[in-house]
């Protein structure tokens, strides 16, 4: 305790370095993070290296099992499943991460505001009720009918529909996060350290950023991991209904739903996209676990 050198060294380290060192010591988180980066690199650079185009049809090679030419086999039109999984990963990951980010941001923002400011609680929570009650499919039909052509004209078919899909998923999946965050904030607000901080005149914005947010990190992290899976699956449902990406645009969710009927005929087709989704979600989950531990000052340094 009286060793001054140690104290100075600790002071020299910034808070983020501290978080990083804690994160690094979390084995699951490191494995998760490296796997996630691996998958990202694979789907970014893979399609450039793999010679077969994902949409190239070689009808003579339909419904094949794994071989050297097609390591993951082929689908009912003879498209290469490996190329499709790579190409699908780009879209799925991008949609998953951005949509989850949007939902998380909205959910946390509304949840914290509702929990912290009593005046905003009732209107914001009724807004949440409204969104929870909206029939998602007709809502999708309406949004897509109103904006598809405009966005397609402004950003081209792919980017336009990407923005639309992300927006749709984000806007329809923030409510649970908001409810949960609000609940936590409500009980945090009554705890001593918050009362103490308030009594020394901490302004609201700093109060929220310094004291409230770090303490609601764990439900947010859980929402994030579940959210990324939900976003990937929801995207497949939207595309499946013909409301999302065009049909020649592979995504993991679509690959999985398209190949469900071929499960007994050609199991590889189902296994790979399914595994890709599961492992991505799993790795994000471990990253979330590590981040939560790293951000919690009570665990840090244990």
């Amino acid at each position: 305790m009286t060793d001054t050198s140690e104290i100075t060294e600790e002071k020299a380290r910034s808070q983020w370095a501290d978080v990083w060192s804690q994160f690094r010591s979390h084995r699951g988180a490191m494995i998760g993070a490296s796997f996630f980066i691996f998958i990202c690199l694979l789907v970014i650079f893979g399609p450039m290296l793999w010679p077969i185009e994902p949409n190239f049809i070689d009808i003579r090679a339909k419904n094949q099992g794994p071989s050297l030419a097609h390591p993951f086999g082929t689908d009912q039109l003879g498209r290469d499943t490996f190329a499709q999984v790579l190409a699908g990963g780009r879209v799925s990951l991008l949609v998953g991460v951005t949509a989850m980010g949007l939902a998380l941001f909205l959910g946390t923002f509304i949840g914290v505001l509702a929990g912290y400011f009593k005046r905003l609680d009732s209107p914001l929570m009724r807004l949440t009720d409204l969104f929870l009650a909206l029939p998602i499919l007709p809502l999708l039909l309406v949004i897509i009918m109103l904006f598809r052509d405009t966005l397609r004209a402004a950003f081209g078919p792919e980017t336009g529909i990407f923005l639309l899909v992300v927006f749709v998923i984000g806007i329809t999946s923030w409510m649970h996060t908001a409810r949960i965050v609000r609940g936590d904030v409500l009980s945090l607000k009554e705890q001593e350290f918050v009362l103490a901080a308030r009594s020394i005149g901490t302004p609201s914005h700093r109060m929220i950023l310094r004291h409230i947010l770090p303490n609601v990190m764990s439900p947010i992290m859980v929402s994030a991991t579940l959210g990324i899976a939900t976003a990937i699956i929801t995207e497949s449902a939207i595309s499946f209904l013909g409301l999302g990406f065009p049909s020649d645009f592979p995504t993991w969710g679509r690959l999985l739903s398209d190949s469900t009927n071929f499960m007994t005929l050609n199991p590889e087709r189902v296994i790979w996209p399914g595994l890709a989704i599961s492992l991505t979600v799993l790795s994000v989950n471990y990253i979330g676990d590590g981040l939560r531990d790293a951000l919690d000052p009570r665990i840090r340094g244990r």
Binding site: T225, I232, G253, T260, M263, T264, V270, T280, V281, L282
Partner: peptide, 25 residues
């Protein structure tokens, strides 16, 4: 804990249109 995490994550990320058909088969 690890097994629980793994199973629940796989369970969550596999959509019912797939797992349903799988159990039927």
């Amino acid at each position: 804990d690890q097994a629980g995490t793994f199973i629940s994550m796989v369970g969550f990320s596999v959509p019912p249109f797939f797992s349903g058909v799988l159990v039927i088969v």
